[in-house]
């Protein structure tokens, strides 16, 4: 079982050979992260974009371009489309966003004709946090893609959280469906959705996971809070996964972790035919590297 994000590296080194395709790898942070991943033997990498420009950035950053394969594309849009088509034709197992805009990257993935979204599938963002003050990894969603998920979307997010946990070796993850209170209050849709998901889990609709909701964040993370509130569930104070009711609450938690606690994080987009890394311009080399590793873990 993966207990810290860095533990992923040793697992991945023992099963090399997957191919990462990077869409428009025109920035130093992305190239440095991919260089690290290639050097560690986690992935082989194909970079799409203007080869000459990428080689110049490599030279400035003292990165050996010989460790990469190149697929030339004239501009951002072409680079994104090329990256997706390489994956679709079986020449890539993972895809990563370079400096192409998120709009263009997502449009290429979602393209009905040339994209890599299976019919009826929904993309959702999953983050794995390595908290400074919590005993284990926390898998959370959706903090970046689905703004206000309904019950149907929450099932998709929940399944993505569970499958990410399984990929990290957590066999029976404990999922807290977050709301502002533990009561199923009719006036608060987050509470009602959480109660329904919890009941669905009780009836076996989510395999190999314990799902509990509604649960406020203090109960999910802190055993003492659960004791005081008299909430008796195996998820209390021991959650592996947190399902947030909307993008704001998830995003606030994510950024508390990264900006206030300076904790490590890995993030991927689930739902496409391969795991996708959707890194932000603001992400560090370390975060990008962890995200590549997480995407690779999903392919094992």
């Amino acid at each position: 079982m993966i207990r810290r994000l860095k533990d992923m590296f040793s697992v991945l080194k023992s099963s090399p050979g997957r191919q990462l395709v990077v869409a428009y790898a025109h920035d130093a942070h992305t190239l440095a992260a991919v260089r690290e991943a290639v050097s560690m033997g986690i992935v082989k990498a194909t970079l799409t974009g203007d080869e000459q420009s990428i080689r110049e950035i490599c030279k400035m950053e003292k990165i050996d371009p010989g460790i990469f394969d190149f697929a030339s594309a004239a501009d951002e849009q072409q680079a994104a489309s090329l990256a997706v088509s390489l994956v679709k034709s079986g020449q890539g197992d993972l895809i990563m966003k370079g400096t192409v805009s998120t709009d263009r990257y997502m449009r290429a993935i979602l393209s009905k004709e040339h994209g890599i979204l299976p019919p009826g599938a929904l993309l959702t963002h999953v983050s794995v946090l390595d908290p400074v003050k919590y005993k284990k990894l926390l898998i959370i969603g959706d903090v970046a893609i689905i703004p206000l998920p309904g019950l149907k979307e929450k099932q998709v997010i929940l399944n993505a959280l569970i499958s990410t946990a399984h990929s990290l070796g957590i066999q029976n993850p404990k999922v807290a469906v977050i709301a502002a209170t533990e009561q199923a209050l009719p006036g608060m849709p987050a509470c009602i959705d959480a109660a329904v998901l919890s009941k669905m889990a009780e009836r076996g609709q989510f395999k190999n996971a314990i799902v509990e909701g509604p649960v406020a964040l203090d109960v999910a993370l802190d055993t003492e809070s659960a004791k005081i509130k008299k909430i008796n569930t195996p998820v209390a104070g021991d959650a592996d996964c947190l399902l947030f009711p909307n993008i704001e609450s998830g995003n606030v938690f994510y950024k508390c972790h990264t900006k206030l606690l300076e904790g490590d994080v890995a993030a991927i987009v689930c739902g496409a035919s391969v795991p996708a890394v959707l890194s932000s311009r603001g992400d560090s080399i370390r975060t990008k590297l962890f995200s590549i590793a997480l995407a690779a873990m999903m392919t094992l």
Binding site: A216, L217, D218, S225, F244, V252, F253, C256, H257, L260
Partner: peptide, 10 residues
């Protein structure tokens, strides 16, 4: 609520 409890319990 997540922000408040995140700060306190996380």
């Amino acid at each position: 609520d997540v922000f408040h409890k995140g700060l306190a319990n996380f």
